Simulated assay, not measured.
Amino acid sequence: MIDILPESQGNIIGIRASEQLTDEDYQTILIPRLKAIIHEFAKARVLFLMDQDFQGWELDAMWDDAKFGATHRHDFEKFAVVGGPLWVEWGAKLGALFMKTQLRTFSNDQLQEAWAWIKS
């Protein structure tokens, strides 16, 4: 499940991921919101927070993520990954190699630091 965090404003979007992310999460929540930000501001800044119960992505959601990231690889200014298992951190770092973005990873107890970085 994806929730948009209330701190989101302007070209900054905070996303809370819990349980398992689905194709519906991407198609109805995340992709439309990111497209609107990119259309209005040209570049998006994303804070991706994984709850303790985060279980990863369904296969279709993984495909949505990869396809959108590849299509918009120049449209992300900063990307903060907060919490989650180590494999997600490594996956994000690998994905960032193909995108024109600054990427930083933070532990769950560094959430405020992540917000400060994404806003700077």
Rank of each mutant, 00 (worst) to 15 (best):
110 Q>A: 06
107 S>T: 15
28 T>L: 12
29 I>G: 04
10 G>P: 02
105 T>L: 04
44 A>H: 01
33 R>V: 10
52 Q>V: 10
108 N>I: 09
9 Q>W: 02
52 Q>W: 10
37 I>M: 05
63 W>P: 00
100 K>H: 08
14 G>Q: 02
3 D>Q: 14
25 D>N: 13
59 L>C: 03
15 I>K: 02
67 K>L: 10
103 L>E: 09
38 I>D: 08
85 P>D: 13
33 R>L: 05
6 P>T: 07
9 Q>T: 12
102 Q>N: 10
57 W>A: 01
21 L>T: 13
106 F>H: 02
53 D>Q: 12
58 E>D: 12
45 R>M: 03
89 E>S: 15
113 E>N: 11
85 P>G: 08
19 E>I: 06
47 L>K: 00
56 G>Q: 07
101 T>A: 06
14 G>T: 01
95 G>T: 09
93 K>F: 11
120 S>V: 04
29 I>V: 15
51 D>R: 14
90 W>V: 12
1 M>P: 14
117 W>E: 03
40 E>F: 06
5 L>Y: 04
111 L>D: 03
47 L>H: 00
29 I>R: 11
47 L>C: 04
56 G>F: 09
57 W>G: 00
117 W>K: 05
33 R>Q: 13
44 A>C: 10
114 A>L: 07
97 L>A: 05
52 Q>R: 11
110 Q>Y: 03
97 L>N: 11
5 L>P: 10
113 E>G: 05
93 K>Q: 15
41 F>W: 12
89 E>F: 15
48 F>D: 13
9 Q>M: 05
97 L>H: 06
52 Q>H: 15
74 H>G: 06
91 G>F: 09
99 M>L: 08
26 Y>I: 00
4 I>Q: 11
116 A>C: 09
92 A>H: 13
70 A>V: 05
25 D>S: 09
5 L>H: 07
88 V>L: 15
84 G>P: 09
9 Q>E: 13
82 V>H: 02
78 K>P: 00
72 H>C: 12
14 G>N: 04
41 F>S: 09
84 G>V: 01
95 G>W: 02
81 V>Q: 08
41 F>N: 15
43 K>A: 01
6 P>D: 14
49 L>S: 00
74 H>M: 13
11 N>K: 14
97 L>Y: 07
31 I>A: 08
6 P>G: 00
71 T>N: 05
38 I>L: 07
19 E>W: 07
66 A>C: 09
14 G>V: 01
70 A>H: 11
109 D>G: 12
10 G>R: 10
44 A>R: 01
99 M>A: 07
84 G>R: 02
35 K>G: 03
110 Q>L: 05
59 L>F: 12
109 D>R: 10
50 M>Y: 03
116 A>Q: 15
50 M>S: 11
112 Q>Y: 08
88 V>C: 08
88 V>Q: 14
40 E>N: 14
67 K>Y: 14
93 K>R: 15
43 K>V: 03
65 D>M: 03
6 P>W: 12
63 W>N: 03
56 G>T: 07
56 G>L: 07
69 G>H: 08
